[in-house]
Design a protein around this nucleic acid. Sequence first.
RNA 1: GCCGGGGUGUCGGAACGGCUACGAGUGCGGCUGCAGACCGCAUGUAUGUGGGUUCAAAUCCCACCCCCGGCUCCA
Length: 464
Amino acid sequence: MGNVSIYDTYTRSEIELDPARQKNITIYSCGVTVYDLSHIGHARVFIIFDILRRVLKKNGFNVIYAQNFTDMDDKIINRAANEGVDYTQISKKYIDEYFTDSDLLNISRADMYPRATDHIYEMVKIIKRLLETGYAYKTSDGIYFSVDKFPGYGRLSGIKKEELLAGARIDVNEDKKNPLDFALWKFHEDRPFFDTEIGHGRPGWHIECSAMIWKNLGDTITIHGGGEDLIFPHHENEIAQSEAFTGKPLSKIWMHIGLVKTGEEKMSKSLRNVFYIRDFLNAYGPNVLRVLMVQAHYRSQITANEDRILKAIEIWKIIEEAMFNLGKPFSLNGTEQSAVDEVMKELRLADNALGHDLDTPESLTHLLAAARAINRMQASLKLSPPVVQSMNLFNEITSCFGFKLPEISRDEAETAKRLVTERATLRSGRKYAEADQIRKKLLEMKIKLIDVGDKTYWRKVEVL
RNA sequence: GCCGGGGUGUCGGAACGGCUACGAGUGCGGCUGCAGACCGCAUGUAUGUGGGUUCAAAUCCCACCCCCGGCUCCA
């Protein structure tokens, strides 16, 4: 229980959330456009929001979390055209793929997954009102939002309208009143289109989020976020259209996640440096990815290269070991109060850091110290069930991080059990060469053996 | 050009006014039938450059150099 502070891009300051004053928290994060598999840059956003929710809940908040799917977009339509299928087949396929990745990553399910195409009615309603109130206007090819009508435009990104124009990579459209004006609706007679009161067409890029938030979470939410590349223009535009519509602030806190690079530069398809979640999981595992993401603060940019991944693996091994040790203490009656005190001290620091703008690197440092102390206790057989129980905070914190021990299938468990027994017999008969063969075989199944006296413990590991 | 964020030891990466994390690497040792895993000990000319403030600066101030991201679809 306690306060949680989060850095707000809009005010450039940390905002304190107090469960005693505001128990209910609504969160919306910009999800993916479903035309391809998700990469580890997306994964960082999923993971950070997952941790955010877990931390808030642990501190006594009620959280309602929504993450959208952009299921209609030119990229989806183009891909569908290339493959000769309907666009809904593409969006459905990649929504399924999203859930596969999300579950493999141990991301808790959101409370809702709104889809753009289910909110056409709300979009039209908002656009109609914006037309009536003069915030929007029609041209030959669509309906645009007039940024000059909205005084706060540019506040989130900290960019002045005049300066934005100087940067000038904005498409020229002579019908627009201001080059920064953005489309709310684009007229289309070619399929797919929606037949609505404001004409045949498709929604603009930004309006869907405004509509989905308004319908599902209300006028003002607590936290809105996504990757930092969404600050401008996406979030800036959302603020303009939503606030012009409701007259109220869209979100209390704007939270932005730093970009992930694979080499020197940002991941992008054109540079061919995209690292898919699926590939990462096959090569390493979900916990290694979490460690990688959590090692740096969520607002900084990170590089996911071989070297960093190898280091993340080493850190994960220590935590994995401690999680296993707590789950299955070797000793029945060990105890050492000073060691327990040390673990608890570190855990409280780890807990504390999470509430301070999700300071995961700081928290991880203390979690690691606790994990090592636990492993030390195990090694000296000072880890009995009551001692383990007294250190339950460890489980609470690893759970906030979303760490989860690798699961073992029933078949694998059966095989392991059988082979370990076999090996024990061989060992007692001093047939070490054969016993070692068995150990090697199990290792190939990612099952490690630990001999403690004449007893052998075994467990599934994420990486060797 | 404008707006963000950075430049720390062999490497990754924290500290954001004094106590120089953490991990990897390397060396020695313990445990072990041997390994693995685990544990102990040891090992680091470190803070982009130049000024300034201070008893004290990676940490604050000024200037400069370099890197990444945004300003176009992007998480």
